[in-house]
Deep mutational scan, measured.
Amino acid sequence: EPSQADLDALLSAVRDNRLSIEQAVTLLTPSSGGGSGGGSMDAKEILTRFKDGGLDRAAAQALLAGRTPA
């Protein structure tokens, strides 16, 4: 399960175009075949909204942490 520091680094990389959204989703869902963790939004949607400015960093982190299976 990614830590808050991992999520923060991942969000920074996506925002700075050092990591594509697809690459980030793969890192967030290493063994689930890329499927959502059952959250209301999947990781790709969360990351896309964050990059487009629709979500701030704290909200994106909380959503990603919340949808990651324990």
Rank of each mutant, 00 (worst) to 15 (best):
E1C: 13
E1P: 09
S3P: 10
S3W: 13
S3M: 07
S3Q: 10
A5W: 14
A5E: 09
D6I: 13
D6F: 15
D6K: 08
L7G: 02
L7K: 02
D8Y: 06
D8E: 12
D8M: 06
A9L: 11
A9W: 15
A9T: 09
L10G: 01
L10H: 01
L11A: 00
L11P: 01
L11N: 01
L11E: 00
V14A: 01
V14N: 00
V14C: 02
V14M: 02
R15F: 09
R15C: 13
R15H: 10
R15I: 13
R15V: 10
D16L: 04
R18G: 04
R18C: 09
R18D: 05
L19E: 01
L19V: 09
S20Y: 02
S20A: 04
S20D: 04
I21F: 02
I21A: 02
E22I: 06
E22D: 13
Q23P: 01
Q23K: 10
A24M: 03
V25W: 03
V25L: 11
V25K: 02
T26A: 15
T26Y: 09
L27F: 05
L28K: 01
T29N: 11
P30A: 14
P30F: 08
P30D: 06
P30M: 07
P30S: 15
S31G: 10
S31N: 11
S31F: 08
S31I: 15
S32W: 09
G33E: 10
G34E: 10
G34W: 03
G35E: 14
S36N: 12
S36K: 12
S36C: 14
S36Q: 13
S36D: 06
G37C: 13
G37I: 14
G37W: 09
G37F: 14
G38D: 13
G38C: 14
G39A: 12
G39W: 04
G39R: 09
S40Q: 12
M41Y: 11
M41Q: 08
D42K: 11
D42R: 12
D42W: 09
D42T: 10
A43L: 15
K44V: 09
K44N: 08
K44Y: 11
E45R: 04
I46F: 01
I46W: 02
I46H: 01
L47Q: 00
L47V: 02
L47R: 00
L47W: 00
R49I: 06
R49G: 03
F50M: 02
F50P: 00
K51H: 04
D52G: 08
D52R: 05
D52T: 08
D52E: 13
G53I: 01
G53S: 03
G53K: 04
L55A: 01
L55I: 12
D56L: 04
R57I: 08
R57V: 08
R57C: 06
A58C: 11
A58G: 06
A59D: 11
A60T: 05
A60Y: 00
A60Q: 00
A62S: 13
A62K: 13
A62E: 15
L63K: 04
L63W: 03
L63H: 06
L63Y: 04
L64E: 01
L64R: 00
L64K: 00
L64H: 01
L64F: 02
A65Y: 05
G66Y: 05
T68C: 11
P69A: 08
P69Y: 02
P69W: 02
A70P: 11
